[in-house]
């Protein structure tokens, strides 16, 4: 097994951890961290699979650099929104009503 493939497999584990965290953790800061773990997993897979035969592939490396900046941007916006929600509601979590719960309220 090459080092690249090992990275990719670790990435798969990170994706699973991030996905579970994003869906299960109620606290917004943890959700945002979970999204970052999921993203890092995807980046590891992208770079790892590209270099599984040992050579260096600059294309996925450049793609991941692009992806990291995009993830920073998304994280910053998410943090600003979470912060705003904290200021407005005093809570750092989304209300727990399921889909369509607000259907009949006014």
């Amino acid at each position: 097994m090459s080092v690249g493939l090992l990275y990719a497999l670790a990435g798969a584990a990170l994706v699973a951890i991030g996905l579970a965290g994003l869906l299960l953790l109620p606290q917004l800061l943890r959700k945002i961290l979970a999204f970052n773990i999921l993203g890092s997993g995807a980046f590891l897979i992208l770079v790892g699979l590209g270099q599984r035969d040992g050579g260096i592939d600059p294309v996925p490396q450049a793609m991941v650099l692009t992806g990291i900046v995009v993830a920073i941007a998304a994280t910053a916006l998410a943090l600003a929104l979470a912060r705003q929600l904290l200021d407005l509601s005093g809570r750092m979590r989304l209300p727990e009503d399921g889909p369509d719960a607000g259907a009949a309220d006014d």
């Binding site: 990719a8 995807a42 897979i45 992208l46 699979l49 590209g50 599984r52 992806g67």
Partner: peptide
Amino acid sequence: WLLGVALIYG
């Protein structure tokens, strides 16, 4: 989507 792209590139 990105995960899919990684698998396709791989």
